[in-house]
């Protein structure tokens, strides 16, 4: 059964332990001769959702590809340590990384049906992921499990969708298949690259709510890139703001929204505050105080950031020194 992950702890319990630690990650684009990622760092605990916020071109998706070690051919890694559960990923061979991807960490890519192999059915593509890691299991067994995964991801009529080709799926449905592919082997760390961009708001809410509930249930960690402050505020525990390849601020989500320090973070949040002020006037809306008692569990006291570039302003809240 897919849902029985050995490490799953009931949601809400303060399960933790660092699962990923990245320090001094620098990626260099050979053709454009610039740093795509410049000295990035992070620490992610089990069950934590880290939101990497930045605008287009900030390097946020390159960061994810750097962590999962699938770089474009024009990009080379200049420096950096990536430790997954204490194991050094940089020391792993390509073959070992291929095994690790899917089983331990997997990426949810955006693009809906354009990110699915157009000539094979949705179901067979999930089976492909499973078979890559469990080559000895029977075809029938894997197909059954794939259908089960589709059901867990919240896809109605999973056995019909199993046989559907990507072009027969709606955008929301195709995106759920991509989530299913990433979650097929129950990896402990997911990397989500702006995967709800382009979905309509009602569908986005449906997909994200269900996905978020699954993460909590399985105590799975997620690093999610986004440029949407609503997504960051609603689903993330920790926020890292990235601009021109550099992390400019890193903070627990409550602290970040209440007390942004870097001028760039403030700029991003000013628009949100304006929108929020307007929304406060929406009388028909019942906005409920969220239970934030759990949120303190992801405060990182020992972030691997160079002390000469970052200032600690509160527990787990780092700000990069500004150039000016």
């Amino acid at each position: 059964m897919v849902t029985e992950t050995p490490d799953a702890t009931p949601a809400g319990s303060t399960a933790s332990g660092e699962i990923l630690r990245v320090s001094d990650l620098t990626l260099h684009h050979l053709v454009e001769d610039r740093l795509v990622i410049d000295g990035a760092f992070m620490s992610v605990d089990s069950g934590e959702v880290l939101g990497v916020m930045g605008e287009s071109g900030s390097g946020k998706s390159a960061l994810l590809f750097g962590i999962i070690r699938l770089l474009l051919r024009e990009v080379e890694q200049r420096s950096g340590r990536i430790a997954y559960r204490g194991e050094d990923l940089m020391a792993k061979s390509n073959r070992q990384m291929e095994q690790l991807r899917g089983l331990e960490m997997a990426m949810i890519v955006p693009g809906g049906k354009f990110s699915l192999n157009p000539v094979e059915t949705a179901g067979s593509q999930i089976v492909d992921v499973l078979r890559s890691h469990f080559p000895d299991r029977s075809k029938k067994d894997l197909a059954d499990e794939a259908i089960e995964i589709l059901r867990i991801i919240g896809i109605p009529d999973p056995d019909i969708r199993f046989r559907a080709y990507p072009h027969e799926l709606s955008g929301g449905m195709a995106q759920r298949i991509l989530i299913a592919k990433a979650m097929a082997c129950s990896p402990q760390l997911l990397l989500g690259d702006e995967f709800t961009v382009g979905l309509d708001v009602t569908i986005q809410a449906q997909v994200m709510d269900h996905f978020h509930a699954l993460l909590r249930e399985r105590n799975t960690s997620l690093i999610l890139t986004t440029s949407d402050l609503g997504i960051a505020a609603t689903y993330c525990d920790t926020i890292a703001v990235i601009r021109r390849g550099q992390i400019v601020e890193y903070a627990p989500v409550l602290d970040f929204f209440a007390n942004p320090q870097h001028s760039y973070s403030r700029l991003l949040l000013s628009a949100a505050r304006e929108a929020r002020a307007q929304q406060k006037m929406d009388e028909a809306r019942v906005d409920v105080e969220r239970d934030t008692s759990q949120d303190r569990r992801f405060v990182h006291e020992d972030l691997p950031a160079p002390p000469d570039l970052y200032t600690l302003v509160a527990p787990g809240h780092l700000v990069r020194l500004e150039d000016e």
Binding site: R101, A106, G111, N117, P118, Q125, D128, V129
Partner: peptide, 24 residues
């Protein structure tokens, strides 16, 4: 393509990636 990158990012093995590329 997005779909081959996507498949590699969820750990689909080389043999299958080759099949994806060939068929397309």
């Amino acid at each position: 393509s997005q779909y081959v990158t996507g498949a590699r990012a969820v750990g689909v093995r080389r043999r299958t990636i080759t099949r994806y590329i060939m068929r397309n």
